[in-house]
């Protein structure tokens, strides 16, 4: 079942001197439970598309239709944790805004994903990977049906990046979320996504959508060792416009 249908999405940015056509003719459908990655050259309009889906930005034209009354969670590139709040309070921010008092779900998540000992610590005493995990739990706290992630791991070093993407993947699958992830990293896209959308350079339109079929699909790190992996890598690499 389609959770989201996008038709002919278009975005023009206006500044006093120039107008920039960032996105045009962007259409695609997202199925419930699916994990879709968006790749494309820098500045092509990936963040713009996510912002419009999450209604953080106005669209110029086109349709974004949700087939249910779904909740959206947004995960930013930077963790954007508040230094004056503890880990727990940071995670509860979304609930606080909605004036919901129930902490149990968040406490469960923190415990389940290895942050139990840090509930009352402040973000300054956490490592980059831990902060990113806290940021994810903050996003999950409001129980979103659809997760939008804009290069969620790009602030991390390679090691942490691999293990966190495993973590995040596990969380998303265990909590049965649908997700759209923007990334620069082709390997990351193949190892995590069911489908990879390749965008052209600006104004971005869909160049190609690649279905990822790996034998023995498991965790992202394991998926990188499958025999189809190099093939997809080659395929996507060739499709992306390189500057």
């Amino acid at each position: 079942m389609n959770i989201l249908e996008i038709k002919n999405l278009k975005k023009i940015y206006h500044t006093p001197k120039i107008e920039t056509l960032a996105v045009k003719n962007f259409s695609f459908n997202l199925k419930e439970g699916e994990f879709v990655a968006i790749v494309g050259p820098s500045g092509c309009g990936k963040s713009t598309i996510l912002n419009m889906i999450g209604s953080l930005d106005n669209k110029s034209d086109g349709d974004i239709k949700f087939n249910k009354d779904i909740k959206i969670g947004y995960m930013l590139q930077q963790d954007a944790l508040f230094n004056w709040k503890t880990v727990l309070d940071n995670c509860l921010l979304g609930l606080e805004i909605k004036k919901i008092k129930d902490k149990n779900y968040v406490l469960n998540l923190l415990e389940k994903y290895g942050l139990k000992g840090f509930i009352n610590s402040y973000p300054t005493s956490l490592s980059g990977g831990m902060k990113q995990r806290v940021a994810l739990i903050r996003t999950l706290a409001t129980k979103p049906d659809l997760l939008l992630m804009d290069e969620p791991f790009s602030a991390l070093d390679y090691q942490t990046r691999l293990s966190i993407s495993d973590y995040v993947y596990r969380i998303i699958k265990e909590e049965h979320k649908t997700a759209i992830m923007v990334t620069h990293d082709i390997a990351e896209a193949i190892s995590m996504a069911d489908r990879v959308i390749i965008l052209s350079s600006r104004p971005s339109t869909i160049k190609r959508i690649v279905d990822i079929n790996l034998t023995d699909k498991k965790t992202p790190i394991d998926n990188r060792k499958t025999k189809e992996f190099p093939y997809y890598y080659e395929l996507i690499w060739k499709e992306i416009d390189h500057v």
């Binding site: 930013l76 508040f82 409001t142």
Partner: peptide
């Protein structure tokens, strides 16, 4: 970024 975060949480 933090303002964007707050907006994404529907504040």
């Amino acid at each position: 970024i933090k303002i964007k975060l707050m907006k994404s949480l529907k504040a």
